[in-house]
Design a protein around this nucleic acid. Structure first.
Lengths: 223, 223
DNA sequence: CTGTGACAGTGACAAAAGTCGCAGTCTGAT
DNA sequence: ATCAGACTGCGACTTTTGTCACTGTCACAG
């Protein structure tokens, strides 16, 4: 179990809590470990526990009957997922799987509810987190519906660039993973990357895309 | 401005409030009237007031530089919109326009904040509403990315069917509007409707789609 | 040092969606 | 009643995406 109390302080929801309350949260939390590829949550399942990524990287995704996958969001260390079912008690809206070996803390819905009721600060943080998620999803809809694949791929590369600067964990997305993020097929991502390379925005070094010209990439994002 | 106190009780956020608090809300609310086609909010603008549709129908949408429009959601009477900026203070994530002559109540961000802080019930309702919006958007992403146009159109028709039964306001969507909902072009919607007609699920009577076989339509939704 | 498997590179082809250009039709306003 | 504007119906054509079927590389395990 060994949930670390200090780690809990990094959960956005609980940043404002005192030592005593945090200890209470720790008592409610369970630690789980996953290997790359492990399924953490299945779409449609009930349960609705709040999950927090202590370390590693998690993808939230939907799968079609034909087997196509759409990633809704990548969850890096320090962030929560499955918030919605934890709050409204409904089924999981999407599946979750580990992209890297990951350590996840799990807090049951009932316990989370206790914490929210007891503390207005937690409630406020919940609202902020949900608002954030909504903005993120609106942006995703905009991308899927209003941009072509190359622009989406450019955006993904910029996001990765930023993420790898903030945390030097430096996870490398495969083309297959980018395809799932962009809602398209692997080959199409390959073409898009080549296009971006010809535009001089990136360089492909042994399969890895290296950002050469952030500005140009940003331009291509909306082209 | 003749905001009706009783109407405010229908706002999900304020359903639990007492008469006194409702009067307070009424004092904070401003009524606005819009004609069909009027722009209510512009994407990117600051301001972030909460809007409540007293009567009429409002669309929330994004527009691309090329002029293509993607509707994120239709807001019927009795529901709020622009919640996210009202809660987090950021810019409007999308634009809003009236599809029918509409009466809208507007509550400023600061006032909403006062109400939330003063009442845990309001805070809880806010969380529920946001969770709901998130589920809706996840479904939209799924549709855009994992379904083809015909399935999306089938879904829109079912939604309309249901909406027109709940409230007999019976607004008729044009193909252009369905196209914006489905994230595609008007002609493509026309083709999809023809396809659904050939499948025996609907009938086209002078441009209007009439649902004949709900079951079949539901099937085509995931085909 | 040699398989094995996971990724990337690619060209050819298929299918879905988007675009054009008009021709009808319906409706509400003058 | 008639006219303008908004909406629908279609066919032809283009573009973008998606799919297939391989090949080439690289890295790690045995």
């Amino acid at each position: 179990m060994s949930v670390e109390v200090e780690a809990l302080r990094h959960i956005p929801y609980f940043a404002q809590l005192g030592q005593k309350e945090l200890a209470q949260v720790a008592a409610m939390s369970v630690e789980r470990r996953y290997e790359r590829g492990d399924l953490i949550l299945l779409e449609g399942d009930p349960g609705g526990a709040l999950h927090y990524v202590r370390s590693g990287l998690v993808k939230i995704f939907k799968t079609s009957s034909a087997g196509k996958e759409q990633v809704l969001r990548l969850i890096a260390a320090g962030h929560t997922f499955n918030d919605v079912p934890a709050l409204d008690g409904g089924p999981n809206p999407a599946s979750a799987a580990a992209l890297e070996p990951s350590v996840v803390y799990v807090i049951r819905r009932a316990d989370l509810h206790t914490l929210i009721v007891a503390s207005p600060e937690v409630a406020a943080a919940v609202v902020q987190t949900l608002a954030n998620a909504l903005r993120h999803l609106v942006a995703l809809v905009e991308d899927l519906s209003l941009r072509h694949v190359t622009a989406r791929v450019a955006k993904i590369l910029l996001d990765q660039e930023k993420a790898s600067q903030e945390a030097p964990s430096s996870y490398h997305l495969t083309q297959q993973e980018m395809a799932a993020l962009a809602g398209t097929a692997r080959e199409v991502v390959g073409r898009a990357l080549k296009e971006l390379e010809q535009a001089g925005a990136i360089e492909l070094r042994q399969g890895r895309a290296v950002v050469l010209d952030r500005e140009r990439l940003l331009l291509l994002t909306s082209a």
